[in-house]
Design a protein around this nucleic acid. Structure first.
Lengths: 145, 145
DNA sequence: ATATAAGTTAAACCATACTTTAAGTCAATA
DNA sequence: TATTGACTTAAAGTATGGTTTAACTTATAT
């Protein structure tokens, strides 16, 4: 029925200290305590923590996540705000994917570059490459001299 | 021919203090100085900084970037190591994209969830949804009660 | 009953990546 | 030539997201 903080931490693959930190920052207002003060994590608390993980991993700061949690506690009057928060985060994530894919292209170019350099035994050789020898998708990264 | 630190910072859209920090951390050993000690950024230095930006934005720590730069300075004997670094980073980036796409799916589910809740005027209504009313791709996130 | 493993808090500490400050030098323009 | 804006450094400060420590309590197994 309930998990201890150590069990919850293991399920979520985080340190117990991280869960205590989230609690202190107001991210876990829903966690019940035993009579002696121990945190008792329900299945639904684990679900909440997965959402927290998701928002955190996609770059939302702790304070932003707290606002979202607070809204959820306030009830149906905040549905619109919660939707707005998530839609905004969705846009952020889409932008992140675009950016990281652009960075991947540059890394792909560099992998190609050093693969060629390894074959040639030096990076000097690449400077004499005629434009035709450079895969088209990499030409935008290639600057002579 | 040369850019000042302020000009370079504007081109790269970073703060001059960030460039000074990178220099202090050993990321910019190639930057020349004027007789009076001012940094002079060449076009090729801007290219290096774009690579630094790329590695940094894809999660490589400053120390990792420094190692890569050091290798480049050491010359052709480090081509293999540089290639390894970039291949490893490429794998990291691919994993990052996969993870963020998984997170996007969860956010998409939440956007759907609160869109439905907004229509219904409450989140309670969703708890009575029959499985058929939940888009298939979201069912894995939907837990009753 | 008692040892030990795991829980509690507040407060201090850490890592990363910068930014800001202070005190001073340099460069460009009126 | 004087002033203003941009540069220099070292050192301190900031923000974020935790972890660690110390002192203590609780839970579990023998």
């Amino acid at each position: 029925m309930f998990y201890t903080i150590g069990e919850a931490a293991k399920i979520l693959d985080v340190a117990p200290s991280a869960l205590r930190y989230y609690d202190k920052e107001g991210l876990l207002p829903f966690i019940e305590r035993s009579e002696s003060g121990l945190r008792m994590f329900k299945e639904s608390d684990i679900d909440w923590l997965k959402i927290i993980e998701c928002l955190k991993a996609t770059g939302m700061p702790i304070k932003g996540i707290r606002r979202f949690i607070e809204c959820a506690r306030e009830g149906d009057g905040t549905i619109k705000e919660r939707l707005e928060i998530l839609k905004t985060q969705r846009e952020n994530v889409i932008r992140q994917i675009e950016e990281i894919q652009a960075h991947l292209e540059m890394i792909d170019y560099k992998v190609w570059y050093y693969s060629e350099a390894l074959k040639a035994g030096s990076t000097e050789a690449l400077k004499d490459y005629p434009e035709q020898n450079i895969p088209e998708k990499f030409r935008r990264y290639f600057r002579k001299s």
